[in-house]
Design a protein around this nucleic acid. Structure first.
Length: 645
RNA sequence: GCCAGCAUAGCUCAGUUGGCCAGAGCAGCUGAUUUGUAAUCAGCGGGUCGGGGGUUCGAAUCCCUCUGCUGGCUCCA
């Protein structure tokens, strides 16, 4: 007998070689039906795999993240089985579960697969699922594994096997389909009741753009049809929040083929939003001792040779602009730091001057591959809320903490709660990717980790995600369809001060090298606004809105009364406009609702006679009659709630 | 840049297997209407079907190419 320990600490005895499924059955048949896999001694296993020796167990079902992931990984195998049945000779790459569903990378030879082919594959998958084939695990020798896939002619699997150690290789088989796989899998295919293949896309084999591009099929599956339906409805809802759609509807920004791809054009309403964001940032920065500067949009090529950016990105940038007579070369600035370094170098500095915090809303231009462009999130010209802090090594941590505080203030003021703070570190295996000494890298990485620990910021660390000149702390936020984007960033840089030979005179009367922090709490206004739109579905916080209310006169006679209201509200710093079009009140309300203007003040003969307004809130309907003072008080209260949130 | 798609009026979309002057709703303009919580009514104007080239007696429809867009991949100072 062996002892099995349950998550609640209970211990029960079972015969040696018992499976998780049998354990589940011993508890209830309902549980057994729902078990997808099990965590045995911390490792996720097949529910049908015999447990040898004492163990801890956690039975995993659809509600567990690992249960879902087992389900989706098994679904990838089902997809592969269907593909093999429909397209004999297909070769397989890898087929993992992802955050929401799964994919399989396949090589169909000369055959190209398009979206229209997916329904037939879905149908085959459901057909195969109904066979309720079990997923059978088998340990194989490397020799046997190679022999099988050589016979089958699957070059990708052979490549994978060659990198595995003999004795650790397992095959899984369901129905006629055998795959190289570590597992685990669900007990049988019958649990997969609902299948939706979402898209086909190209994906380079092993993520290497020099290697062959395989066909990637994305899909998602569920144990119940109803769940699939709910999921698809959710995706539809998310699409309505897409900033590209809302941006057009609300006339915030546009693109023009003639101006060029990836070059956003801000329309008056979007620009007003931008201005408010910038003013907010200006105020917050002024409180924290930043000085604003303005620098040109271009800089001589030599500037970027000095900074090291030319060597790193010269080929992959917009190419230099030349002066017609002198032949001087200028680059569109891809970042502001070299210009700011020159500002620092403009005069000698004493340690007493530091930290020096130089800020600019700097518009920069970067070449992005055409396939990468995406609305406002990935563009070729954008404005950073950039600043560079020059400080002594001793001040580094305090300055970092100061920036951290600013960034957190910004995110909370915007109502962003679901961000991830990611510390991006070097890839230790690829020193050639980075410039700067080991010593400086270590010091910088340590500073970031310590500062985030100190403020209790929860972070994730990613190796290999650092910029080429230094480690960074990025704030990542998700868009409407779950993609993660970098917004705010804080980067420590020992390199640029070196390259620009920046100095300050210390208390010892000797020259020293300052440390530099690059930071942008919004990141770029473009991307920030794209996320703001998707997070709020275009219903922006009240304090940010240029148009907070619309005054809707019911007839012409009350327009003058509306004007007196607007004047009085302006005194309270409440902004809005009068919709005096010759339209029905129903139409005015509908149009204002669609423009997502938070307050509608409806005024007819009664309101004009009584000196009040009828208040309607966007999306919430009639709020009843209020006097102006009542409305102003209510308004102020909402602003206060926003501020504290 | 690569893979797979898409591109018809300002917007959202129809347009059967290539066949008369390319359609609708909304928006716009003109007029009537002065309206009580999500679309008042009527009339009118508007598209070299993304650009260019080709096949054909004939192309929005088929082929090539460029541009832009969508979903991925790679990249992201």
């Amino acid at each position: 007998m062996i002892q099995i320990t349950f998550p609640d600490g209970n211990v029960r005895e079972y015969p040696n070689g018992t499976t998780a499924m049998e354990v589940a059955e011993s508890i209830s048949s309902g549980l057994a039906r729902n078990v997808l896999s099990a965590r045995i001694n911390g490792e996720v296993w097949d529910a049908t795999r015999p447990i040898e020796g004492n163990a801890t167990i956690a039975l995993l079902t659809w509600i567990d993240k690992d249960g879902k992931s087992t389900f989706w990984h098994s679904s990838a195998h089902l997809l592969a089985e269907a593909l093999e049945a429909l397209y004999p000779g297909v070769q397989f790459g890898i087929g993992p579960a992802i955050e929401s569903g799964f994919y399989y990378d396949v090589d169909l030879g000369d055959k190209t697969l398009s979206f229209d082919d997916l329904p037939a594959i879905e149908k085959k998958m459901l057909e195969l699922a109904k066979e309720k084939n079990t997923y059978d695990r088998r340990e194989v020798s490397k020799e046997e594994a190679l022999a099988y896939f050589t016979e089958k002619g699957d070059t990708y699997k052979i490549e994978l096997i060659n990198e595995l150690e003999d004795g650790t290789i397992t095959f899984y088989q369901q129905g006629a389909f055998v795959d190289l796989c570590r597992g685990p899998h669900i007990p049988d295919t019958g649990k997969i009741k609902a299948v939706k293949l979402l898209s086909v896309a190209g994906a380079y084999w092993r993520g290497d753009e020099k290697r062959k591009m395989l066909t990637r099929i994305y899909g998602i599956t569920f144990p119940k049809q109803k769940e699939l339906k709910a999921h698809l409805e959710m995706m539809e809802e998310a699409k309505k929040r897409d900033h590209r759609k809302i941006g057009q509807e609300l006339e915030l920004f546009m693109f023009s083929e003639r101006v060029g791809a990836g070059l956003p054009i801000w329309l008056p309403k979007g620009n007003a939003l931008r201005e408010r964001l910038m003013n907010f940032m200006r105020e917050e920065q002024e409180k924290r001792g930043y000085k604003m500067v303005t620098t040109p949009h271009i800089g001589k090529k030599e500037l970027y040779i000095t900074s090291g950016h030319y060597a790193k990105y010269g080929e992959d940038s917009f190419q230099p602009i030349e002066t017609p007579r002198e032949g001087e070369e200028f680059l569109l600035k891809p970042m502001n730091c070299p210009h700011h370094c020159e500002i620092y170098a403009n005069k000698p500095h004493s340690y007493r001057d530091l930290p020096l915090r130089i800020a600019e809303f700097g518009t920069v231009y970067r070449y992005e591959q055409s396939g990468e462009l995406h609305g406002l999130s990935r563009v070729r010209g954008f404005t950073q809320d950039d600043a560079h802090i020059f400080c002594t090594p001793d001040q580094l941590k305090e300055e970092f903490l100061n920036v951290l505080d600013l960034t957190k203030t910004v995110l909370s003021r915007m109502g962003f709660k679901n961000f991830t703070a990611q510390i991006s570190l070097r890839d230790p295996g690829k020193p050639e990717k980075y410039i700067g000494s080991d010593e400086n890298w270590e010091a910088a990485e340590r500073a970031i980790i310590e500062a985030t620990d100190e403020v209790g910021l929860e972070t994730v660390q990613e190796l290999g995600e650092a910029a080429f000149y230094g480690p960074k702390l990025d704030f990542m936020v998700r868009d409407a369809i779950g993609r993660s984007w970098q917004l705010g960033t804080i980067q420590v840089d020992y390199n640029l001060p070196d390259r620009f030979e920046l100095e300050y005179i210390g208390s010892d009367n000797q020259p020293h090298r300052p440390v530099m922090i690059h930071r942008a709490p919004f990141g770029s206004l473009e991307r920030f606004i794209s996320i703001l739109i998707e997070n709020t579905a275009g219903k922006f916080p009240l304090w940010l809105l240029p148009e907070q209310y619309a005054l809707l006169p019911i007839n012409e006679k009350v327009v003058d009364y509306c004007k007196t209201i607007a004047d009085k509200l302006a005194i309270h710093d409440i902004r809005g406009f009068i919709d005096d079009r010759n339209e029905s009140i129903g139409r005015k309300i509908r149009d204002t609702e669609l423009k997502r203007i938070p307050y509608m003040l409806i005024v007819g003969d009664q309101e004009a006679a009584n000196g009040n307004v009828s208040v309607r809130r966007q999306g919430q309907g009639d709020q009843g009659i209020m006097t102006l003072d009542e409305f102003a008080a209510h308004f102020q209260e909402v602003l206060n709630i926003e501020k504290e949130a």
